[in-house]
């Protein structure tokens, strides 16, 4: 177990601080003493074998899962059972899911404007302008009046990204956003994510797209059996892993 420290920690103000985090599903110890600090604007890629607790970890950050021990501080607010704090943190964070989870009974435009209107109390006109702005940014403005069911997987995931951005989050969490997609669509989603990264968004990203990790990540975190095995800059992580477990994992996903 290594403490995941930021190499240039002193340079960045931290926005997510996780310390001594432990979580159990019943008797099953799914997260074991996790310590992770993410700086403002930092891009962290989390990888690891299936069942290692990656999803659980990032779902703890916006309280889709509750933790039993340890501290999670997001943008200066500590996560507790207090509903107000949870709401506040959820408004600061956007999350992308493997299955997109768009609202199927609404058009794409409604998907994008609903939350700004009802949660941020934005006037409809402004919300629409915002929606079109982000639809253009993810390069699908012509889909505004379609229903999610009429869009391809890659398009749906880009819509989901735009939907998050409409709430102007400070932190974006990605849970394997491309693993349900065909290779041709993976690229269009990754392009949007790279673009987002270059805009200075803080990103915590569970993914097995190692190309993305190499080019975009400031740090790669490797998890196994609920622990952070190692966390390093991509250069060191890929070329000079410190543990044999990491090397084994890398050899498996790179040669598969």
């Amino acid at each position: 177990m290594t403490t995941a420290t930021t190499p240039e920690k002193n340079k960045r103000e931290s926005i997510v601080t996780i310390s001594g985090l432990n979580k159990w599903f019943g008797d099953f110890h799914v997260l074991k003493n996790i310590n992770l600090e993410v700086g403002k604007g930092e891009k962290v890629v989390v990888c690891g074998p299936s069942g290692s607790g990656k999803s659980t970890l990032i779902r703890c950050i916006n309280r889709l899962e509750t933790h039993q021990q340890g501290k999670i501080i997001v943008d200066g607010v500590e996560l507790t059972n207090d509903v107000k704090r949870i709401d506040k943190i959820r408004r600061e964070t956007g999350m992308l899911f493997q299955n997109f989870n768009l609202f199927p009974h609404m058009t794409v435009l409604e998907n994008l404007t609903l939350s700004p209107i009802w949660i941020r109390k934005m006037p409809l006109k402004e919300a629409r302008e915002l929606a079109f702005h982000y639809l253009e940014r993810v390069k699908i403005p012509d889909l505004a009046n379609k229903y999610p069911g009429q869009c391809s997987g890659g398009q749906q995931q880009r819509i989901a990204i735009a939907r998050c951005l409409c709430m102007s989050p400070k932190i974006m969490l990605f849970d394997e956003p491309t693993s349900a997609l065909d290779p041709e669509m993976i690229k269009e989603v990754l392009d949007v994510m790279v673009d987002l990264a270059s805009s200075g968004m803080t990103m915590i990203c569970v993914t097995h797209e190692m190309g993305f990790a190499r080019t975009v990540a400031d740090r790669v975190v490797f998890m196994d059996t609920g622990e952070i095995v190692e966390a390093n800059d991509p250069e060191t992580f890929f070329n000079n892993p410190q543990y044999d477990r990491t090397a084994l994992f890398l050899s498996q996903i790179i040669n598969h």
Partner: peptide, 26 residues
């Protein structure tokens, strides 16, 4: 699907609003 609740909660929807505008209509 559970994902509908999760997506709504992740966007910051409180329970009653989420239910009346997202879950119940579906």
């Amino acid at each position: 699907p559970k994902g509908q609740y999760e997506a709504a909660m992740a966007l910051g929807w409180p329970y009653w609003k989420m239910m009346s505008l997202i879950i119940i209509p579906q």
